[in-house]
């Protein structure tokens, strides 16, 4: 009997530990630049992300070369001239949900959160804070956010010839669907 109880406790605790982390390797991060000259959109559907529900820590990782553009030339310019993918292949975000207590991971629904952390692009790390949404579904956790970054903050130089083609502020969209680990 005692062993049975112990076993049950053990299994239950193992289950809760497992259920506290959510992860995907098929997440989406996109960016969008709008100017009167042209619209440029880059999509990355190979984003890895992990959320630790017990601490609110959230990590995103993406390869710059996995961004897809409508035109091959945009992709080439992005990788070779702007983010220099060969030198800086990865972009990462490491942060925390600052209002974790507002999220009830046991109850389905959409929760407004604020995420603060360090965003690394092009070898430059910047502290950012952004509003986002956490959606608890029956299958896991969805996380969404939209925020703006300035290329110059990450030492991304835009040649003056195309300066008018690229927005001063780039919209970044995050959309990940993380099943429990």
């Amino acid at each position: 009997m005692k062993t049975q109880i112990l076993l049950t406790v053990f299994i239950l605790s193992a289950f809760t530990i497992n259920a506290q982390k959510f992860m995907t390797k098929n997440g989406y991060i996109g960016f969008f630049s709008h100017t009167p000259m042209e619209d440029i959109k880059g999509d990355n559907n190979q984003v890895a992300s992990i959320l630790d529900a017990s601490t609110g820590e959230i990590v995103f990782q993406a390869l710059m070369k996995s961004f897809k553009f409508e035109k091959a030339l945009m992709e080439e310019h992005f990788n070779e001239n702007y983010v220099e993918s060969e030198k800086f292949p990865k972009s990462t975000f490491k942060g925390k949900i600052t209002n974790l207590s507002d999220v009830d991971f046991t109850k389905t629904g959409v929760y407004k959160v604020t995420v603060e952390g360090e965003l690394l692009i092009h070898g430059v790390t910047q502290n950012i804070s952004t509003p986002g949404e956490i959606e608890i579904t029956g299958d896991g956790v969805k996380a969404r956010s939209k925020f703006f970054i300035k290329p110059e903050d990450y030492k991304i130089e835009i040649p003056s010839v195309v300066r008018e083609n690229i927005a001063k502020e780039i919209t970044v969209t995050v959309d990940v669907n993380m099943p429990p680990m």
């Binding site: 190979q46 390869l63 996995s66 990865k90």
Partner: peptide
């Protein structure tokens, strides 16, 4: 091939 994160990634 666009490199490796936790897995090797292929696009297109």
């Amino acid at each position: 091939c666009s490199g490796m994160l936790m897995d090797v990634l292929l696009i297109d």
